[in-house]
Computed example of a mutant assay.
Amino acid sequence: MKIALFATCIVDAMYPEVAQATVSILRRLGHEVTFPSGQTCCGQMHINSGKFAQAEPVIAAHARAFSSTEWDVAVSPSASCVASLGHQQPMVARRMGNEALATEAADIASRTFELSQLLTDVLGITDAEADLGSYFPHRVTYHPSCHGMRLLRLGDRQSGLLRSVEGIDYVELPLADACCGFGGTFSVKNPEVSSAMLADKVRTVHSTGAEVCTGGDASCLLHMGGGMSRFQCTGNFEGTPDVTAVHVKQSSSTEPRDDNADHLTAVVGAGDDDHLRTSENETSPAEPSRVQSGLRVGQSTVHLARILASTRQDPLRVQSEGATVSGGSLR
């Protein structure tokens, strides 16, 4: 089968190893992989911000790139971008009065699959160890991205493939269906809310004791990995087996009062209301005490494709084995 790879802009710019892993998996199965030139972005950032006029040429560029070459199906290691192709692109083109582009975009979207969709629904892969030779002997938890879960309705496709990897110690993530707080432009426009959601997500990842948190969207993993990295940097843990304190505080001052300024504080590793406790004589939120439940050294994020591409002959290493972690993401 001839499979066209839609790498996505964030994978191309930040995580090219994810695209390489996707190609490796498909070639291992005997398929021809082609990379349509001229591809850039799906336009999701523009569309989510209501910039339909600016999104139209981006959609047109995607349509041109994937109409310029022959392929049977297309694949992308991003549930978010695949969802945008089908859910947003035709709608925006029609809203802009471009019916021809809407039809072309819908046709391309109908033949474009997220990686786990392609593997399970099209190629019939259900056992990663037997069919792909996947090997990753580490404790792993999994975050299902919002678009994969709610728009593509991936169900257990990604987690099922993960569970079948040889040697993996798979552990469920508490409150897995909660958003990580990225939401594309949401994290830029609503940083305080996004950071609070991220703190909750990182706290649940830590509770699993997993070395790695994986998922199928590089954008979510970028957000979560960056959060892990920032949280780790707040504790003095160099050379020690555990972070002694993860104490993340983002404060914004309101109007000053007679005693001192009120502070809004988000804490990772403490109870949800720890920062609200006051004594009888205090009139402002108390400074959170240092906690002893920080992130483990070596906890990081990594895309599902890289775990599926890992084999006994060419294993993906984790930080404890000497792998590099940049911005909380396994390299």
Rank of each mutant, 00 (worst) to 15 (best):
V18L: 00
S24F: 11
L26P: 01
H46K: 15
G50D: 05
A53L: 06
A63P: 05
A63G: 07
A83G: 06
A83S: 08
A93G: 03
N98E: 02
E104N: 07
S116E: 05
L118R: 12
D121T: 12
G124W: 14
D127S: 14
L132H: 04
R139H: 10
P144Y: 12
G148C: 03
R153Q: 14
L154C: 05
D156V: 03
D156G: 01
L161I: 04
R163F: 00
R163G: 05
V165R: 11
P174Q: 02
P174I: 01
L175I: 09
C179M: 01
C180G: 07
C180T: 13
G184D: 05
N190E: 13
A199N: 07
A199C: 10
D200E: 13
V205M: 02
E211I: 07
C213H: 00
T214R: 01
A218V: 13
L221G: 04
L222N: 07
G225Y: 10
G225W: 08
G226Q: 02
G227Y: 07
R230H: 13
N236T: 15
F237P: 02
G239M: 06
V243F: 09
A245K: 14
Q250W: 15
S251R: 15
P256K: 14
P256I: 11
D259G: 03
D262I: 05
V268T: 09
V268P: 03
G269P: 02
D273C: 00
S279L: 07
E280S: 11
E280H: 15
E282W: 12
T283S: 11
T283A: 06
P285T: 05
E287Y: 14
R290C: 12
H303V: 00
I307Q: 02
I307V: 00
E321L: 03
L330N: 00
